[in-house]
Design a protein around this nucleic acid. Structure first.
Lengths: 215, 215
DNA sequence: TACTTGTCCTGTCATGCCGTCAGCTTACCG
DNA sequence: CGGTAAGCTGACGGCATGACAGGACAAGTA
């Protein structure tokens, strides 16, 4: 699918080339988590990687292009989020642990990749389809699984059939993403990390099953 | 409180000055909604306002500073969001309309100010306290009211007392904000605007009261 | 070892934006 | 009408951008 890694001018990158390319990506990732997105400059990334700006432009059209690459890498790892929800039972006690695992997995994934996810979120909100696609790629599997779960509950009559399962699942996932993005913010609000998880778990369980989780 | 509007070098701005200042802000707001945040340049804003970059720097330290100003304006208007939740009953039918009004008000506010709110969200997520403060200012009143509502329901035994009311309220507000920010995105997911509102309403009501809204 | 080939990196340059200053114009006031 | 402060801009050094040509390097070949 991806085939070979290519430079901007069309040459195939060899071993050495891929190494510097990766180094540039790593440094970019580091920069993103230490300075505001708007202030990340090509020259800084290049300096940090011990190379020159010209080299950067050999592998990426611009900063945005490189971020997309980073995001793509992350999206691959994000596929593992599927495991958090696929083939899970939402009945009784196992439903409670399903909600717990989902919340925990989500929060830690976001914590790990917060810098890039911020930028992806911004790009998506600004209407950039490429960023939106990546955001989808990460959230889709989770959302789809949750959508199925909601449908099941609707079949059992626990959730109003007029409600759109995709809308509910999507909203819950958006909530998880948003809370994860502002984890630090909640702290300055006087809400501790430890308080956040059970509340989210409760809300997710409630939203999917229409019922409070068993104690 | 604000006293007079001042230029960067300390002079008080007169009528004419305030006019150009405002014009710059308006043009900035327009730019933000048409181009990516990263690409908004001082020179473009100035050109659009029919003035020179130097003039821009007379009133604002940089683009970020001007955005903060815009956000501050918006935050004032956002205070009206309080009315959506203050002194509302969450019992029975009136609870259902309370949830409805909250969702509707939130979505339309976000739709109106989406460009600036995107940037505020980014700044807050990046850890900038000034942006975080503004985000708080907008969301705080709503969150606090919701927190009180949750506490009431806890007193009635409908919600587990171990759960932190602030965490629940904050998560719900974060959900509203996130969904609002990605309203367009949901469409390309196959979820229509019309489906979104009832689902959000349902989730909010469920989260606040622990019960499904009456039909 | 010398030569060849293709990959990889950088020095350099034109361009354009940033952020600042001195200095000019405009408005207000006694 | 002259003084004073507000308001604006041209111009400038500095830096990031993005393009190119050419040098450095590794690997294969004779």
């Amino acid at each position: 699918m991806t085939g070979q890694v290519r430079t901007v001018d069309g040459r195939v990158a060899g071993r050495r080339g891929q190494a510097t390319r990766q180094k540039l990506l790593d440094c970019l990732g580091e920069m993103l988590s230490t300075s505001p997105y708007r202030d990340v400059k090509v020259i800084d990334v290049a300096r940090k990687a011990g190379t020159s700006p010209a080299t950067f432009y050999q592998y990426f059209p611009d900063v945005e292009g490189a971020v997309l690459e980073l995001a793509e890498e992350m999206a691959k790892e994000g596929a593992s989020l599927t495991d958090l929800v696929a083939d899970r039972s939402w009945a009784g006690k196992s439903g409670a642990t399903a909600a717990e695992d989902l919340v925990e997995g989500f929060l830690s994934f976001w914590r790990k990749h917060d810098a890039i996810l911020r930028v992806v979120d911004l790009g998506a909100a600004e209407g950039d389809k490429r960023f939106y696609k990546i955001r989808m790629k990460i959230l889709n599997s989770v959302t789809n699984s949750l959508t199925d779960a909601v449908k099941e509950q609707q079949a059992k009559g626990r959730i109003d059939k007029d409600l759109n399962p995709g809308a509910i699942a999507g909203s819950l996932v958006a909530m998880l993403a948003a809370v994860a993005a502002h984890q630090k913010g909640f702290q300055s609000w006087g809400v501790k990390q430890a308080d956040l998880r059970p509340s989210l778990t409760w809300l997710v369980h409630l939203g999917i099953t229409g019922r409070k989780p068993p104690k």
